[in-house]
């Protein structure tokens, strides 16, 4: 261990961030951050569009849950790099080329399991008596799901989305391996060119972005979830 070397890296990274050259052109920090967020957001949105309806429906009916959840969990077991390798030929065969699309395709399976599992578990966990009362009062089945089960499962649904988002933001760096944009660019290029200040800057930006996403979800959750679901002491 050479303490001096470590200090140098931090100094160099700081210097990298203060260099105005890194804020202009197609490789500018703000451009890469935007690309990264765009890719991540789209991946989470598509995954949510697939996983939420399935998770909510299965949670409501309690049907086929075993199969669906296991299929979703396969996504968890597959390494992201392997997914990227799978996604490449798919993207090529669809004429989507390198970069953005194969990365997007490989990120979606990563985001599906936490979203689907949490939606399912959240809905299943709603008090049976509350649902029976709702049905007994004449709420339709979609009405029960929309106005009773979903709001009550919201904390878990949101935490699934949050986990998925943080995972995707962290993993979207892999896109740079297949000529994609985003913050992975700095890491992959920094590694290739042995420019460790650039590599560190990229890693730092990804970590910061992931934390910000986490915090933003926390804020949103505090607003979106009914005060009635907090502990009685808080609500009073």
């Amino acid at each position: 261990m050479d303490p001096g070397g470590r200090v140098n890296i931090f100094v160099d990274t700081f210097a990298w961030f203060t260099d105005p050259a890194h804020y202009t052109g197609s490789n500018a920090v703000q451009v890469r951050v935007f690309e990264h967020l765009e890719l991540s957001a789209l991946a989470v949105l598509i995954a949510a569009a697939i996983a939420l309806p399935i998770g909510l429906y299965l949670g409501h009916t309690g049907r086929l849950a075993f199969i669906a959840l296991n299929v979703a969990n396969v996504g968890r077991a597959l390494p992201s790099l392997a997914l990227l390798a799978f996604a490449l030929p798919i993207a090529f065969s669809l004429g989507l080329g390198l970069g953005f699309w194969p990365t997007l395709i490989s990120l979606i399976p990563l985001a599906l399991p936490p979203i689907m599992t949490n939606a399912y578990v959240g809905i299943r966990g709603v008090d049976r008596d509350v649902i029976e009362a709702a049905r007994g009062m004449g709420l339709s089945e979609p009405g029960i799901l929309r106005t009773v089960e979903a709001p009550l499962a919201l904390p878990l649904i949101l935490s699934g989305l949050r986990t998925a988002s943080v995972n995707v933001v962290a993993t979207a760096t892999l896109g740079a391996l297949v000529a994609g944009g985003g913050l992975g660019r700095y890491i992959v290029d920094g590694l290739a060119l042995q420019e460790y200040d650039r590599l560190f800057a990229g890693a730092l930006l990804v970590a910061t972005l992931a934390i910000l996403v986490e915090v933003a979800f926390g804020r949103f959750e505090a607003r979106a979830v009914s005060p009635g679901l907090r502990s009685p002491a808080d609500a009073l």
Binding site: V130, E132, A133, L152, G228
Partner: peptide
């Protein structure tokens, strides 16, 4: 019902 089943939210 006995458990009332009020909507907590």
């Amino acid at each position: 019902i006995q458990q009332v089943g009020l909507f907590p939210h």
